[in-house]
Design a protein around this nucleic acid. Structure first.
Lengths: 118, 118
DNA sequence: TTATAATAATACCAAAAGGTATTATGTCAA
DNA sequence: TTGACATAATACCTTTTGGTATTATTATAA
């Protein structure tokens, strides 16, 4: 009833991405890690509202948070974004078969590479 | 205040994708076009609830709807999914530089190809 | 040690989302 | 033309979301 055949955890990522403020936060965090205060400076909403967005991003595993003294550093976690990207990749075939095939080839190369590193 | 530097319309797509039922509907529609009734058979919620999801998918331009007699045919529109995929591609660099570079090359080939067809 | 700055935690509110139930409308087939 | 069926349109309810305001904590610096 809740996304049977989907990779676990992807719902949290999609949910987190559904808000434009949160997508903006991800963009900022891609440039550098930030405290809640630094993120808040870049938006016109209250710090508490920003904190809620950061919590949802953390629940979706799109960011991680580490304490540093009295501050909390928010850090981008790109792997969860990759899981969303992978979900979308299924539809590649519907907009461009050639691109999909090339990406398949690349994926296989990646797999072989990680096997040989083991 | 509402996603300043984002491509127009992407919010509707992200919103539509944030619900697991809607993602399931997209999967089914990728196999074949369906009426509301056919979609409803595949879920345990009422037809009216399915209709609401289809409306949100249509608003996000992820599907199109065409009347055929007394039925309404729902059809997958992959281009909007591509816009989401493109947004995510920005983050490729953070999880795998090699893959990102290869994709850049592919994109450029696509651009040249479409130029030469004009 | 104490004032201050950064963050957390509540409590609260309005609006949107997700759903059901019910009623209306339009179209096909006999 | 009329009955049945597919869909549309409302109305209504509950839960979640996005936000503010206010009140704790907690750690650093003087």
């Amino acid at each position: 009833m809740s996304g049977a055949s989907e990779p676990q955890g992807i719902q949290g990522a999609f949910r987190a991405l559904s808000d434009p403020t949160r997508r903006g936060i991800l963009m900022f965090l891609s440039e550098q890690d930030m405290t809640i205060g630094e993120v808040s400076e870049r938006f016109e909403i209250t710090r508490a509202a920003v904190k809620k967005h950061l919590t949802i991003l953390e629940q979706g595993k799109l960011i991680s948070v580490h304490a540093r003294g009295r501050e909390r550093i928010n850090h981008l976690e790109p792997r969860a974004l990759k899981s969303v990207s992978d979900w979308l990749r299924y539809f590649d075939q519907y907009w461009d078969n050639r691109l999909a095939k090339l990406q398949d080839v690349i994926e296989r190369q990646e797999q072989n590479k990680s096997k040989s590193t083991k």
